[in-house]
Design a protein around this nucleic acid. Structure first.
Lengths: 337, 337
DNA sequence: CTAAAAGGTGACAGCGCTGTCGCCGAAAGC
DNA sequence: GCTTTCGGCGACAGCGCTGTCACCTTTTAG
């Protein structure tokens, strides 16, 4: 089953069939319909390898990651995959654990052997300058998801972390909390910094003072969340009524501490996270958190690559909306019920 | 950078380079070395599309899934990817949410356009007869991971669920537990049935009676675990000292119930799971469980596909070893400390 | 009403590799 | 010593498509 069969059945040359398949202009409508009918009748689908070899497109989009969180990667994958499938593309997933020149080499080799039409980069991999260098050297198009720096260097998609943190904080205030602690992420992480900013801005706008020690540094890991939780909860007299961890893993760390100290969530302590990772629903009580539009961001990234948008000038970033997910780990403080 | 460059540098024809690259025989060792040196010097990697078009192999392995658990899929992916990379293959991931004839059609279309060298199928997708039919019709090689039936139909890899459940039960007995409850999985799921069998066998071999109601049915979901947990724990007088949930999600369901009822794990109740899913480490206390060699199974599956093993007769199944992961959710019962 | 532009189509040459076949020389058999 | 085998290598023809260019037909402009 090749293009020749379709051409013969439609009574045109293979080139015309090719034109129809690729939605090129300069084909009479009647011809186009004839060809489409023939292709449909034969249930014909063009061969990807031949297209890739002859043309420039490979119909493959790469997804590179080094993120150890399978939930996050899975969501990205799914979003990207759906967008790919719509356009007849396929998704090639590659884990990139190397760093430095090894990373550079393996990317170069990869692109020499399979010319991907584009690559999606997710954090923290997307913030590796050597990767971007290698990709650019290989003339590969790439889109970053939630990158932290060099925003003008490539198209990217992101969500408004600051605003999300702001609204989550406002939600806690509306519940009646005023002594709210915050656990931040790595300071060099732009999204983390935005979340912290959103929190402090919301507190300031509400006229609430943030006492010393109420903002704890974290690393986005379960362990760092546990440590910050210990610092915040150890002294029964100095406990905040709510803790806002700037990602779910850290929130789970706090939850472990609370369990150990027999602090009941949400009765004794309101705890909220950020990311809506899969574990957020698996713990008890289920975690109030912010849903990142991970799958949508990935789908957008794939679309940008497929349509070759972002090649022209114009805004490089595409912002997507977040969503507050209210579950069982948040409630009004004791005095307010 | 093409094969011609290498041929020229090595002073041979492109066909000889091709032979060396494909490890074909009938090449003098000295020639082979010259070619390899030239290829290394030029940092040459053959073009996948051209190979696919000219030869029969596409150097692509598909991974099809419909499993909603991102942790599991992620592990499979990683194992398969590593095996692929070693052999210069790439992994194409596709989610297959369709069923029935829609599934058949989309698989057929997929294989018409991209001739994958092989496909890895993971549960529960690997137990869809229509999928297997479509794959066979498309003459695609496939390997199943932990399939439930028709074992002779294709090569597959699996682990010994019965033995793993047996050993976990023996471990609980050794801790001093004798009143152990078990939460099973869907009865039509072969692995689930094996786990139940391992549990009952271990109890019988230890001369322990399993009281009525001590074996609860589950669905492998968080929710079904919670429900089974409620049935087992609701009456304070009739609680078992240990619960063995036949997967981690259900164990987490039980844990949620225990939290709600203020039953302390592991002091008041030992709770163990099965799978070593990522969440098992994120909850508090961390869950004692059985590690499935998920990544290894996937790697083995990829290898079988790449080496075209399993084409000849011989055993279709490849068994891999499991591992007991002892964490903090298991301890001797109260009376024994 | 004629020239130029645009619309519509096909012939043909590759894309970068592998499969087939055929040639040459060296080892093996009589 | 002569044939036969086979190891070692290259020429050549595609794999199934797309890009280029050339050709013819219709429109549009002047």
């Amino acid at each position: 089953m090749t293009i020749d069969d379709v051409a013969e059945l439609a009574g045109v040359s293979i080139k015309t069939v090719s034109r129809v398949l690729n939605r090129e202009p300069h084909v009479r409508d009647s011809t186009r319909l004839r060809v489409e009918a023939a292709a449909a009748k034969l249930n014909y689908t063009p061969n990807v390898s031949a297209r890739a070899l002859a043309g420039s497109r490979s119909y493959l989009i790469g997804l590179y990651y080094d993120n150890p969180s399978p939930g996050y990667v899975g969501q990205v994958e799914q979003g990207a995959m759906i967008a790919c499938r719509k356009a007849g593309y396929h998704l090639v997933v590659e884990e990139m654990l190397e760093t430095g020149s090894a990373l550079r080499e393996s990317v170069t080799a990869l692109h020499a052997r399979a010319r991907l039409d584009g690559v999606i980069l997710i954090p923290p991999l997307c913030d590796r300058p050597e990767l971007l260098d290698a990709l650019e050297a290989a003339k590969a198009a790439y889109v970053r998801i939630a990158p932290s720096f060099d925003l003008e260097r490539s198209p990217y998609v992101f969500m408004d972390d600051r605003r999300a943190a702001y609204e989550m904080t406002a939600y806690l205030q509306k519940l009646g909390h005023s002594d709210i602690a915050f656990i931040g992420g790595p300071p060099d992480h732009v999204a983390a910094a935005s979340r912290t900013e959103g929190f402090t801005d919301a507190m300031a706008d509400a006229g609430l003072k943030v006492a010393k020690g109420r903002i704890q540094a974290g690393e986005f890991s379960f362990r760092s969340g546990r440590e910050a939780g210990e610092r915040l909860l150890d002294d029964p007299k100095k406990r905040p009524t709510a803790i806002f961890a700037s990602n779910d893993d850290m929130a789970l760390g706090v939850m472990a501490v609370a369990n150990r100290l027999h602090i009941e969530i949400p009765n004794d302590l309101t705890l909220v996270g950020f990311d809506d990772s899969p574990s957020a629903q698996v713990v008890w009580p289920q975690l109030t958190t912010v849903r990142q539009p991970t799958a949508e961001m990935a789908a957008n990234a794939a679309e940008i690559l497929i349509t070759r948008a972002g090649t022209e000038g114009g805004p490089r970033g595409r912002r997507l909306a977040f969503e507050l997910i209210i579950r069982d780990s948040s409630a009004p403080p004791r005095g307010r019920r």
